[in-house]
Nucleic acid binder design. Structure first.
Length: 569
RNA sequence: GCACCCGUGGCCAAACUGGAUAAGGCACCGGUCUACGAAACCGGGGAUUACAGGUUCGAAUCCUGUCGGGUGCGCCA
């Protein structure tokens, strides 16, 4: 058993059963250090159900529970909390790398999904990095992860773009600035009726498989996609061309999907459109809310393609879990899609479908983050600025003065790691579901709960080994903590697995951030209070080993967040 | 109009989904360096968790109402 929380809960619930009690042990990490390492809150509820005195029950549970070799101290507090202090020998057995789940699943993770008609902007950042982080965590725990980049590569806007591309004879270099190209095309579209008509005809040609039009479309998509791939590569996002199943790839399945719904008797015509009306989407006064799956002109909508998409993920990919990292504003859409899929038999109760929503990125004025001109900020520009700010910070702090043999190339590499890490961490460390304020100064402050703080903690662990000229490989894998700062550090290291399993379940990377920040804080205290290199014999070995373990968990955890580390900075 | 989400010190925010004295960070005030790196650590002040009721051993969390903010809602994705 590797998950400490699960282990403690199991043992306590065994004790509950022996005493004829039922219920969850409600195990969690201690809310305050003086309460020990973990606490169980379940006794109060269990006692109440049995009409018993909670403190008496807590004592009986403590007497009955078998935590030999696991806990060194159990105590009752308050109305019936059980506080648990773990035994250092038990902590020593903890692993510093993620352990595979006993219940591996096939998980489709849907994230990023940019619109290829335009350049990627800040609005795509959250889906991309949060989804990427959760995908990595799932994979680290031994789940089979199928990444899906559901790009917007189809639809009416491409008629406009392809027509403009043809008209201007645009080659790839004039598409270097996709945003500018889109604006020009849009302007042309808005001003010229004849151009509009041509654009509409182009859409029809494209969707009916006209070869010349498709060739043109592919050219455009290639250029746009390679722009995205460049950003993924720079950001260290684990997405490649193989993960792309764009909207266009569902084109041939849309008709079938509607037929399938029809075959279930779910289809109803309303004002010429084909709709599905479900009981769960009625307003209070009984007004029905439709999900339109086919327009009155015969065209299909994104609900249809999401249904076709779901069918592929369940039937072809054999997913038993599908996670959508998509903006919170689409909550109703996904509720509807999941409900229609269930009703139409596209999905089934064995498949877990979850919309993992996230909030909007805001500027300091609490309005959606835009440039002074009111335009969306290009992702490429944002990353450039992050790196250049990081570079300036490094120069201000004279890192090269502190590390005389650091050349410009290393400095530049550091700026990249720190700048991108800061942007990602600022996002990942906030609760996914709420909006958050994007603030340069805060995220690159180097102080407080930031990526640079964690990266610095990591480089400190490394610097102990380089300064001491010690090979970490020569150290034992396990060591029993003695002093309190050592023990507190060991407790945090041992909790890594619990935390990862929680992130895999709930999809909240900020919990991983909070964990790493706490770990780094405990290491800083250990670092202040427990000299490593100047201590001797087994104390030195012990502290070096704890340092090595901290180093491993920091690197692993930051790696799962998609944030790089450097041996010195 | 209907539906959903949100409101936590000056600012950013957490609270493991009903648990203990509402974390932590920024900013502010004070202390600690001859580098296992002070990009750090230690200490301090600052909160009626929007408001009013309710549920119970216990509420930021659940229920009702009010106020404030955001988002979505039949042929865009």
């Amino acid at each position: 058993m590797i998950n400490i929380r699960a282990l403690l809960a199991e043992r306590l619930e065994d004790a509950f059963a022996k005493l004829g009690l039922t219920g969850d042990a409600l195990l969690q990490t201690a809310s305050r250090p003086e309460f020990g390492d973990y606490q169980s809150n379940g006794v109060m509820a269990a006692a109440k159900r049995g009409g018993l005195n909670p403190r008496d029950v807590a004592q009986q549970v403590i007497d009955a529970v078998d935590l030999e070799g696991i806990a060194q101290d159990l105590s009752i507090a308050g109305p019936g909390f059980i506080n648990i202090t773990l035994a250092p020998e038990f902590l020593a057995q903890a692993s510093t790398s993620p352990q595979p789940s006993s219940n591996p699943r096939r998980v489709v993770v849907d994230y990023s999904g940019p619109n290829l008609a335009k350049e990627m902007h800040v609005g795509h950042l959250r889906s991309t990095i949060i989804g990427d982080c959760v995908a990595r965590v799932l994979e680290a725990l031994g789940h089979t992860v199928i990444r899906q980049n559901h790009v917007g590569d189809w639809g009416t806007q491409f008629g406009m773009l392809l027509t403009y591309m043809e008209e201007t004879g645009a080659a790839s270099d004039s598409l270097a600035d996709l945003e500018q190209f889109y604006r020009s095309a849009k302007q042309r579209f808005d001003e010229d009726q004849e151009f509009q008509d041509r654009s509409r005809r182009a859409v029809v040609k494209l969707q009916s498989g006209d070869e010349a039009m498709l060739a043109q479309w592919e050219k455009f998509i290639d250029i746009s996609m390679s722009h995205c791939q460049g950003l993924y590569d720079r950001l260290g996002i684990d997405l490649t061309a193989a993960d792309v199943d764009g909207e266009s790839s569902y084109n041939d399945e849309l008709k079938n999907t509607v037929d399938l719904i029809d075959a279930k008797g779910l289809l109803q015509e309303s004002d010429g459109a084909q709709c599905v009306f479900l009981d769960e989407f009625k307003s209070k006064n009984g007004e029905a809310l439709p999900v339109i799956v086919q327009k009155s002109d015969g065209g299909f909508l994104y609900s249809t393609s999401d249904l076709a998409c779901l069918r592929r993920r369940i039937d072809d990919f054999r997913a038993d879990r599908v996670l959508y990292f998509v903006d919170a504003r689409q909550a109703l859409h996904f509720k509807q899609v999941f409900a229609v899929a269930a009703a139409a038999g596209i999905s089934n109760p064995d498949v877990e479908l979850v919309h993992m929503p996230f909030g909007t990125m805001l500027g300091k004025d609490n309005k959606p983050f835009k440039t002074r001109q009111g335009e969306l900020v290009k992702l490429a520009d944002l990353l450039d600025e992050a790196v250049s700010r990081a570079r300036q910070l490094l120069l201000d702090r004279d890192v090269q003065g502190k590390n005389p043999d650091m050349d410009d190339a290393e400095l530049e590499q550091l700026a990249e790691i720190i700048g991108l890490g800061a942007v990602k961490y600022a996002d990942l460390s906030k609760n996914r579901t709420s909006d958050y304020v994007f603030d340069w100064d805060q995220m690159l402050s180097f102080a407080g709960n930031t990526a640079p703080y964690l990266q610095y903690a990591y480089s400190r662990t490394r610097s102990i080994f380089s300064r001491g000229e010690i090979d970490p490989q020569s150290l034992p894998a396990q060591v029993v903590a003695v002093d309190e700062p050592e023990r507190r550090l060991a407790v945090a290291i041992a909790g890594y697995q619990d935390l990862l399993e929680q992130v895999a379940q709930d999809g909240y990377p900020h919990q991983l951030c909070a964990y790493l920040y706490d770990l780094a804080g405990r290491f800083a205290q250990f670092y202040e209070q427990c000299p490593v290199l100047s201590s001797e014999d087994e104390t030195k070995i012990r502290r070096l080993t704890l340092t090595k373990q901290t180093s491993a968990v920091l690197a692993s955890g930051l790696g799962l967040l998609g944030i790089g580390v450097a041996p010195r900075m």
